[in-house]
Amino acid sequence: IQLFSRPDFLGDHFSFEDDQAALPASFRPQSCRVHGGSWILFDETNFEGDQHILSEGEFPTLTAMGCLASTVLGSLQK
């Protein structure tokens, strides 16, 4: 999965292949690309809070990911 700090796959980005119990504190994903398989994104660290399940594809905004525009993602799980 690739996470981007701005909508439309712009800004800083991080790529992950494994579960992340905590995303970098200063990084707030605003768009993402899922390459193969599914990922669960969580509103809180340690895989807690609301879950957003994404299958392979491109998600140019938080709302395209099924999140509110104000959502701050905290962790993710493959």
Rank of each mutant, 00 (worst) to 15 (best):
D43C: 09
L62I: 08
M65T: 11
F59C: 04
I53E: 14
T61P: 05
G57H: 05
I53K: 08
I53D: 09
L54N: 04
G74C: 13
G57T: 06
H13T: 15
Q51A: 13
G74T: 07
F47E: 01
G49I: 01
G37D: 05
A69L: 08
A69R: 13
I1H: 01
H52Q: 00
G66H: 04
L73C: 10
S15G: 06
T45Q: 14
L10D: 11
F59Q: 00
H35E: 10
L54D: 00
E44V: 04
S5C: 00
G49T: 04
E44P: 07
F42L: 02
L68R: 15
Q51I: 07
D18L: 05
K78G: 05
D43I: 05
N46A: 06
A22N: 15
L10P: 04
L68V: 14
I1A: 02
A64S: 15
E56K: 14
S15F: 12
D19A: 07
C32W: 01
W39K: 01
F14T: 07
L54I: 14
T61R: 06
L3M: 10
L68G: 15
S5P: 06
S26A: 14
G57D: 06
L23N: 05
D18W: 05
S15P: 04
A22S: 13
T71I: 05
S15Q: 13
F47P: 00
H52P: 05
L73T: 09
D18R: 09
S15L: 15
T45A: 15
P24Q: 05
L54K: 00
F59Y: 15
A64F: 00
D19K: 02
D18A: 11
L3E: 08
L76A: 08
L41Q: 00
Q77M: 10
E48A: 12
L41M: 08
S26Q: 12
L54S: 03
S26Y: 13
S55A: 12
L76I: 14
G36M: 09
S75K: 07
I40N: 03
L23F: 13
F27W: 06
P7E: 15
L76C: 12
A25D: 13
I1T: 05
G11C: 05
Q77L: 06
K78E: 06
A22R: 13
S38L: 10
D50W: 06
Q20H: 05
F14D: 04
S15D: 11
N46T: 03
T61Q: 06
T61L: 02
S75T: 06
P60N: 03
F14C: 11
A25V: 12
D8Y: 11
E48F: 08
D19P: 01
L54F: 04
G66Q: 05
L41D: 00
S70C: 07
Q77T: 07
A64T: 11
R28Q: 12
M65A: 07
S70H: 12
S31H: 07
D8H: 14
T71G: 11
T61Y: 04
Q20Y: 06
G57C: 04
K78V: 11
G66S: 04
G66I: 03
Q2S: 13
E56Q: 11
S5A: 10
Q30M: 15
L76S: 05
D12H: 10
P29S: 03
I53S: 10
F4A: 05
F59P: 01
L23G: 02
S5M: 07
D43S: 15
L54T: 03
D50Y: 08
D19F: 01
D19I: 02
D43K: 08
N46D: 11
L62W: 03
F4L: 02
S26F: 13
G57Q: 03
G49V: 04
Q20F: 05
G74F: 07
H13Y: 15
E17T: 13
E48W: 04
T61W: 01
E17W: 12
V72S: 14
S15R: 11
F9R: 05
T61M: 00
P60G: 05
L41F: 03
P24V: 03
L76F: 08
L73V: 15
I40G: 03
F27K: 04
E17G: 08
V34P: 03
L41G: 05
H52S: 06
A21Q: 10
F59M: 00
D18M: 09
C67M: 11
W39N: 05
S55R: 11
D43W: 02
H13V: 15
L73P: 13
D18S: 14
G36A: 11
F4T: 01
A25S: 13
C67F: 14
L62E: 02
G74I: 06
F14S: 06
P7H: 02
L73K: 09
I40K: 01
D12L: 09
A25R: 12
H52E: 06
V34L: 05
E44Y: 09
S15Y: 13
F42H: 04
Q30E: 08
I53A: 11
G74E: 00
F4E: 01
F47C: 04
E17R: 12
A25P: 14
F47S: 03
D43A: 14
K78H: 08
A69W: 07
P29Q: 01
D12N: 12
T63Q: 14
I40E: 08
T45S: 13
S70Y: 07
L54R: 05
P60H: 01
Q51F: 13
L41I: 09
D18H: 10
Q51L: 07
S38M: 12
G36I: 03
L76V: 14
S31T: 08
D12C: 10
A64Q: 09
E56M: 09
E48M: 14
A21P: 13
D18P: 00
F16H: 01
D19L: 03
F16S: 04
L76Y: 01
F14M: 13
S75F: 08
P7D: 09
L54P: 04
T71R: 08
G66C: 06
E56V: 12
G74Y: 08
T63S: 14
G37M: 05
D18F: 07
L76E: 03
D19V: 01
T45F: 08
G74L: 11
R6F: 08
G11R: 02
C32G: 04
P24L: 01
Q51D: 08
A21Y: 07
A21M: 09
G66M: 01
N46Q: 09
D18I: 05
W39M: 01
W39E: 00
L73S: 07
S5W: 01
I53T: 13
F47D: 02
A25C: 10
L23H: 02
R6M: 15
G37S: 09
G37Q: 01
R6C: 11
F14K: 09
P24I: 01
F14H: 10
D8S: 09
Q20I: 10
F9I: 05
